[in-house]
């Protein structure tokens, strides 16, 4: 895949695209209309992270014992749960913004007809990202409640895990959508799990970053890692200045990703 990103070109364009976003909520409204009929599939999406959590709680926790995080000892399942929460926010956002968007962009040509109304490419990009994030937020809330019921929530600050998941969703939906505009066929999507699986496995999801030893800095490159850290910190109710850096990374990814996506959609459809 040849991805030619010329940062100068995009930063020059960003304002024009961003200022032209006025009605993204109308595309969200369309997605809600569609979801009204496919709500079963939507609800079932919540079960995957739940099964992971249950499997670890039932089987692995006893084998691993407690884990030390920030000076506190916590059960292994309570350690992994925030990682799973972040990973499912990522997976949902990536799926919604890649396959689903590609289908509408290239196969059903949905966006062609949307762009002949007063909506703009920016509305389309942000609207689709917003829906992916909205759905992710529902799953996150359900997951948070599940953790609370299972007694894994250590602090009331854990309520902040939902906005953290929203941020993760925004970041990954933006990257996903930007990359999707460069995809040529469905075969290109085989590379998507090749990117998300390593992120899922190596973002301090299943064990503390200290375990990577001198390779710990590599983990920092994973956008998911920054999300995992935010949610884990929320669960422990601990405030550190580094959290601002984690937030900043995700915000930057979101802004750059969605600007590229909007610009590319415009270029693909308005020729």
């Amino acid at each position: 895949m040849s991805v030619s990103l010329n940062p100068a070109a995009y930063t020059r364009i960003v304002p024009a695209v961003v200022f032209d976003i006025k009605r993204p909520h109308l595309l969200v409204e369309r997605s809600l209309m569609v979801t009204r009929r496919s709500w079963v599939a939507m609800v079932s999406g919540f079960f995957e992270p739940l099964f992971y959590l249950l499997s670890i709680r039932i089987g692995l926790s006893a084998l691993v014992g407690d884990i030390e995080v920030g000076g506190q000892l916590i059960a292994y399942d309570a350690f992994v749960a925030p990682g799973l929460m972040a990973a499912s926010a990522m997976n949902g956002a990536v799926f919604d913004s890649t396959m689903n968007v590609f289908f509408k962009l290239k196969i059903t040509k949905l966006y062609d007809s949307v762009l002949s109304t007063p909506l703009t490419a920016g509305d389309v990009a942000l609207g689709e990202i917003m829906f992916a994030v909205l759905r992710g937020a529902l799953y996150s809330t359900a997951f948070m409640v599940t953790m609370w019921v299972m007694g894994m929530v250590e602090s009331p600050w854990f309520l902040l895990s939902v906005p953290a998941c929203v941020l993760i969703g925004f970041a990954f939906a933006s990257i996903g959508m930007a990359l999707t505009t460069f995809m040529r066929s469905f075969e290109d999507f085989e590379y998507v799990p090749a990117a998300t699986l390593p992120l899922f496995l190596f973002s301090a999801t299943f064990y503390p970053v200290s375990q990577y030893g001198e390779w710990g800095w590599v983990v920092q490159l994973s956008p998911l890692y920054h999300g995992v850290e935010l949610i884990r910190a929320a669960n422990l109710g601990e405030w550190r200045v580094e959290l601002l850096a984690h937030i900043a990374v995700l915000v930057v990814i979101t802004v750059v990703g969605s600007a590229i996506a909007a610009r590319r959609i415009e270029r693909l459809l308005l020729t």
């Binding site: 009605r23 109308l26 409204e29 369309r30 569609v34 059903t108 949905l110 062609d112 007809s113 007063p118």
Partner: peptide
């Protein structure tokens, strides 16, 4: 348009309604 770019995920009525919403 030359090829009907209708919204396959929606019903006929919903197609028209959401389009109306796009026009505010």
């Amino acid at each position: 348009p030359q090829l009907d770019q209708l919204d396959n995920d929606l019903t006929v009525l919903e197609n028209l309604m959401i389009y109306g919403r796009y026009f505010d």
